[in-house]
Design a protein around this nucleic acid. Structure first.
Length: 607
RNA sequence: UGCCCGAUGGUGUAAUGGUAGCACAACAGUCUCUGAAUCUGUUUGUCAUGGUUCGAAUCCAUGUCGGGCAACCA
């Protein structure tokens, strides 16, 4: 029987308070179809925190036979850019590929909400299309949803609110508005007649007023305990070019007004967001309920966002790290951005396992990065091809092995997956082994190579260290060893019990390549705890670049594969986040995703 | 300060009035031609005080601690 690994094997269906609610709604038949959405603002790159949200929203769509729309929440023209729209699409596609891509709700390029009549009421609706609906040209025919595609409809809703006497144009300055809202006072413009409001709002739209001079406000309750009900702003004037709508508009809806309506227009049933929007929920409901809408209304549910230890996730600080040159860019493999994570060699399966595994609650907590690293190791252990590589070489001469002789030894590609087969590795008289695998003065319990000691070379012979050759400065430059020539795998002495087995490469056959050894970016679990500057807790050894000696088969390394350099860690071929090489003639560069667990390092540190 | 939300081992979570369970981490052992993986075992928990109940992590009250909101950001 083959033990071929099934990396797409479904994880047990998660359960949490939101899914419980959705299940209940399904049982009640409350909606004809469950419909979620993932609504990033295109003003930065997606990061590990978004991965949790993506997995939650797409996971629900998956588990309940629903759809999850990708929507750009782009109502602030001064902050958003096309570059981010593209990176967001790329990252979402990467994370859900083969898992929930058939649940991804997109729209036909250029499509806008349709006007329709439901139960005699005027209504707008924009249904999703799935890649499977679009066929082979899905990519060219579709695009994500954009809140900015609904500006016409959102504007119409604003007009309707004015007509109902539930919104008014306010002429106060931003400072006055803040003051009045804080102290619970009514705006002097609150009771403007509907006709005047309509006229003023039309002129706002026409561009006759400068930025900041007027806003449209909801008329709710100036003294409500919840600030968000104290006549919140619905529209502001912004004479700015928008990345998606160009110069078409000079008034833009605020988040609270646009978001609930976007959800409604798309037929969203469960609008899932993070805890900080909890206090906005009454406003979300007020807007939708005030509009007298004919279809089922969406509802908002909140969960605690992911806060991983040893990382920084805030967009602003991520930008600062990039701009200060402390990392190489948005896709630096040390960053928790999805493009950085991808470049680091983490697979979507591993990220998903982690993002789903942490669960969904309303409890704010810091998730130990060990949980993340465990998910990565578990995934990579199953899939990685084993290879021999020496990061910090020291020369070994097998004195009793004939000069000029080479033999090809069998090596297992993946002990976790016998279908991965075997390969040949060349052995010869001169080898490299890891500097750490030799100790002239060995610490207690050291069972690697030491003067007069024996160690097994993986897949090859047992060798004994006869002589330590040093340079003038006293540094060890070469080890002269003899091999037990009968101890080769399959040989007469193969069964000899030797405590230590080390990796090696043949000096004549190995090739040199750059290997980037990445480690945690921060040394502290909470880089900013106690109000300290996160720059002070940067790990000075988060990146070390070495020129390593690699077994020849790695010359054919591919970006899609994952490798385990035996006894060292998991590595991948470096591919920048945008898919384009750093230079015109890229050389082979390997990134370390993660080390193997290292009990010995812990033991050695103890003594 | 006002309003809202939360609290289960070191960490993340489950138990939906009926045996506090799982994963990670740690530790000990097993196995090993990877000091990895595997396998076995161990340690550690219901924020506090009252109340309701035959029975409370769960319901109620009060307190404590933590978080969020109080942008013409999302």
């Amino acid at each position: 029987m083959s033990n071929a690994i099934d990396l797409a094997a479904p994880l047990p269906a998660p359960s949490d308070f939101i899914r419980d609610l959705v299940a209940q709604h399904v049982a009640e038949g409350r909606y004809s179809r469950i419909h979620t959405r993932f609504p990033p603002e295109p003003n930065g790159y997606l990061h590990i925190g978004h991965a949790k949200s993506i997995c939650l929203n797409f996971g629900i769509a998956r588990e309940f036979g629903g759809v999850c729309n990708l929507r750009m929440d782009d109502t602030n023209p001064t902050k958003e850019e096309v570059e981010y729209v593209e990176s967001i699409q790329r990252d979402v596609d990467w994370l859900i590929a083969g898992w929930a891509d058939t649940k991804l709700g997109l729209k036909r390029k250029g499509a806008a909400p349709a006007t329709q009549s439901v139960n005699g009421k005027h209504d707008f609706h924009l249904a999703p299309v799935l890649k499977t609906d679009l066929g082979p040209q899905a990519l060219e025919l579709s695009e994500p949803f954009f809140a900015s595609d609904y500006f016409v409809q959102i504007h119409a809703y604003a007009v309707r609110l004015i007509e109902k006497g539930l919104a008014f144009v306010c002429d106060m300055t931003p400072e006055q508005t803040d003051e009045f809202r804080r102290t619970g006072q009514a705006s002097p413009f609150r009771n403007r007649p509907v006709a005047e409001n309509l006229d003023l709002f039309a002129r706002m739209k026409a561009g006759v007023f400068p930025d900041g001079t007027r806003v449209l406000r909801a008329k709710i309750d100036v003294a409500a305990p919840n600030i968000w009900l104290r006549d919140p702003l619905l529209y502001r004037i912004r004479h700015a070019e928008h990345h998606h709508t160009g110069a078409q508009w000079c008034i833009y809806p605020m988040y609270d007004f646009a978001h609930c309506l976007s959800d409604y227009l798309e037929g969203i049933t469960h609008s899932i967001c993070t805890l900080e929007f909890e206090v906005h929920r009454p406003l979300y409901d007020w807007i939708l309920e005030s509009l007298d809408l004919p279809r089922a209304l969406p509802h908002q549910y909140e969960f605690a966002k992911l806060i991983p230890s040893h990382m920084i996730v805030s967009k602003r600080k991520l930008i600062a790290l990039v701009e200060a040159g402390l990392v190489s860019g948005w896709d630096d493999p040390r960053l928790p951005t999805l493009s950085g994570i991808r470049r680091r060699g983490v697979t979507p399966e591993a990220l998903r396992a982690f993002a789903i595994g942490v669960g969904v609650t309303k409890f704010v907590s810091v998730t130990d990065i060990a949980l993340y690293e465990h998910a990565i190791r578990e995934d990579l252990n199953k899939r990685a091809l084993r290879r021999l590589a020496v990061l910090r070489p020291i020369k070994v001469i097998i004195t009793n092995y004939p000069v000029g002789q080479t033999e090809e030894l069998d090596a297992t590609n993946n002990p976790e997956d016998e279908t991965a087969g075997k390969r040949k590795v060349p052995f010869s008289r001169e080898l490299f082994i890891e500097r750490d695998d030799f100790a002239e003065v060995p610490p207690p319990k050291y069972f690697r190579l030491k003067p007069g000691g024996e160690v097994r070379l993986k897949y090859a012979f047992i060798i004994k260290c006869d002589e330590v050759v040093k340079d003038a400065a006293g540094h060890v430059v070469e080890l002269r060893c003899t091999a037990d020539l009968d101890s080769r795998t399959g040989g007469a002495n193969a069964a000899r019990k030797i405590k230590g087995t080390i990796h090696w490469v043949s000096a004549a056959h190995a090739f040199d390549a750059e290997v980037r050894l990445y480690d945690r970016l921060f040394t502290e679990a909470e880089p900013e705890a106690d109000g300290r500057d996160y720059k002070a807790t940067l790990n000075p050894r988060s990146l070390e670049v070495v020129s390593a000696k690699l077994e020849p088969s790695l010359m054919q390394a591919t970006p899609a594969a994952r490798y385990q350099f035996e006894r060292l860690g998991y590595f991948c071929v470096d591919v920048p986040g945008n898919g384009k090489p750093e230079t015109q003639n890229p050389k082979l560069v390997f990134n370390r995703t993660l080390t193997l667990k290292d009990t010995w390092a812990k033991e050695a540190q103890r003594s």
